[in-house]
Design a protein around this nucleic acid. Sequence first.
DNA 1: ATGAAAGCGCTAACAG
DNA 2: CTGTTAGCGCTTTCAT
Lengths: 334, 334
Amino acid sequence: MATTGKRPTLRDIADATGLSVAAVSYALRGERVAPETVERVRAVADELGYTADPVARALRGGRTGTVGVLVGSLADFWQQTLAHAIQRELRAQGIQTLLADADGDPAQELALARRLVDQRVDGLIVAPIGPAGGVWAQISERVPLVTIGGRLHGAATVGEVVFDQTAGVGEVLRHLHTLGHRRIAVLSWAVAISPDRPTEAAVREQAAALVLDCEIVPCAYSLDGSRPLALEVLERPDRPTAVFATSDAIAYGALHGCRELGLDVPGDVSICGFDDHPLSRLVAPSLTTASWDTDRVARAAVGFLAAHLAGEADGQRTVIEPRLVVRESTGPVS
Amino acid sequence: MATTGKRPTLRDIADATGLSVAAVSYALRGERVAPETVERVRAVADELGYTADPVARALRGGRTGTVGVLVGSLADFWQQTLAHAIQRELRAQGIQTLLADADGDPAQELALARRLVDQRVDGLIVAPIGPAGGVWAQISERVPLVTIGGRLHGAATVGEVVFDQTAGVGEVLRHLHTLGHRRIAVLSWAVAISPDRPTEAAVREQAAALVLDCEIVPCAYSLDGSRPLALEVLERPDRPTAVFATSDAIAYGALHGCRELGLDVPGDVSICGFDDHPLSRLVAPSLTTASWDTDRVARAAVGFLAAHLAGEADGQRTVIEPRLVVRESTGPVS
DNA sequence: ATGAAAGCGCTAACAG
DNA sequence: CTGTTAGCGCTTTCAT
C-alpha cells in the first residue's frame, strides 16, 4: 500500500533498494536477470504498489497495451453491441480499449483515427463509414489496422472482417420478392456522403437482378433519426409495400413510424432489418432481419490484431456469412 | 501536408523557422506573443500538419483533453445509451472520451479507474457499481471525479448526479400495489456483491411501507443474463404476480422468459422496468418503466466536470427525478 | 550483473 | 520578445 499521495516511480524503487533505475527497470521485466535481485525488486515494487506509467512508456516508444476501436456511430444499437463485444474480447487478451465514436461523420472518423494514433495505440480496429483514402494509407503505416465491414483499399491492413453483403442483401430482397413485394424503400445510412458503400452497391445490383423497384432513401442511423424519414416515405401516395432498413436501429424507427400512422405491420407494409440486434426478437412485431454473428466478428477482429502483435501471420481475412431470420415483420403483399 | 512518414514535432517547426523549440511552443499557444512571429509559426505548423503530441503533453503534466468514462456494464442497454450520450456531450465541449466498461465486476471497476488515472485523464465520470472505499478517496485526490447514480462517500467529488431512487422505486411499487399486486419479484443486479446499493435499499424500505411481499433476486445485467433467472422465478409454483426489474435490459430478459413459458403479459404476470430505454416503447408488450432523462444526466455530469476544469464551482449536485411511464406490460392482478 | 546517460516531445522557470 | 535549461518516467545503448 502506498501511503503517500504520489504515484511511485522507478526512482522510488531504486532508492528503496539501493539499485539504479535501469537495474530496476530490467529486474521488473526479468530481463538481465539476477535471480535474487529480481525477487527483492518485485517485493519492493509490490509493497509500494508500483505500476509502470503507461504515458511514459508510450512516449518512450514501447507498447501501450491499448488499442483503439473506432465505430461509425454509437447511436446505432448494433454498433453498441459490437463495440461492447470487441471491448470484452480485447480485455480477455489483457488489452485496454480506447473507444471512439465518429457519430456518423466521416471527417470525424479521420480526425479520431489520427488522434488515436497520436495516443500511441498498439493497433486500431475500425468499422469505417467514410471512403478509403490517402490518410488511411498513412495511418496504416503507423499502426496495425483491422477493418470490420467496409474495406479500406490502399491501406495496409493486418486483418479484415468483411460481411458478405451481396449474400445478405440478396437473402433479404429475395425473401421480399417471394412474398410478392416489388416496390421497396431501402432506408440506408447517409448514401450521400459515401455513395460507394458496399451495402448500397449490393442493393442496386440485387434489385436489378430481381427486377425490383428499389428506392434508396438516405437517413440517419438512430431510431429517432430514421423515424422522420420513415414517416415521409410511408405517407406517400404510392407507399412502398416493404421497407428494407440497412440496420435494425433504422428499422425500429420505421416500426415506430408505422405505429404512429396506424399502419399494420406486416399487413399494410413489411419491414426488414439488417443486423439482428438482440432486441429484434422482442419488438412488436418481431423483426425479420439478416443476422451477422456479432461475437464472431469481434473475435475475428481482435484475433487478427492479437496475432499481429504476437508477430504471427498478417493480412488475414474472414468473411462473415449472413443468416436470414424470418420473424413477424414481413408478410405477403396484400 | 506532411510528405514524410514521421509526425512533425516542435523541433521541426523550430528548424524551419529558425526559432527555438520553446519559442515555437509559446507562439503556438499565443502566449508570449510576437504578433508576426505567431503568424509565421502558425503558417509553418499548418503546412507541416503539426499537432501537439498528447502523450508528451500528458507526461509533462498538462491537460490531456481526455476524460475517462467508467460504466458498470455495457451489457446493459441503458448504460450503452448513457455512455453514448456522455461521449457526445463531451465532444461538444471539445473533450476526448476514454470509455471503460467494468463489465459488472467491482474489482475491474477499481482497476480501470486506476488505469484511467494513470493515463492522465483530466477527469473521471463514473457510474459506480462497487462500494465506496479508500481507493476511491485516493483517486479523487488525483483527478476530479463526477459520479452518476451511486455516490462514493469519502471521495471528494466535484459533482454528483443522483437518481431519486426512493421516488422511482416508490412510483413503481405504488403502481403495482394499486393494480392489486402483493407478491413481487425484484430482479436486480448483483445484490450479493454490493448489498447496500441505493436501489435495493429503496426497494426494502418502500416494500415495507406498502406491506408488499418483495423478494429481491440477484441477477446479471444483460438480457441473456437475466433470462434464466427470470425463468427460474416464473416457473415456481407460487409465481409472483409481478416482476420489477431494476433495469430495462433485465426486464427484457423477463419478457423473453414469459414468452418462452407461454405466459401472458400482463394477463398472467406484470412486468416493470426501470430506466426507459428507447426501445421499451417498441417491445411487445411495451414496457412500463421509470424514466430518468438520460440526456439530462449526461449534460449534468459533463457540465459539472467542465465547470470544474474551467475553475468554476465544485461540489455540485443534481437530483434526477423519475417519471413513471405506464405502458402495456403492467395490468391488474387477475 | 549493474550503473550512467541519452532521449522520446513537450512546457515552464529563468535568463538575456 | 526570445533562447537556454531542466525535467516529466521510462527504456536502451554503452560502459564498467
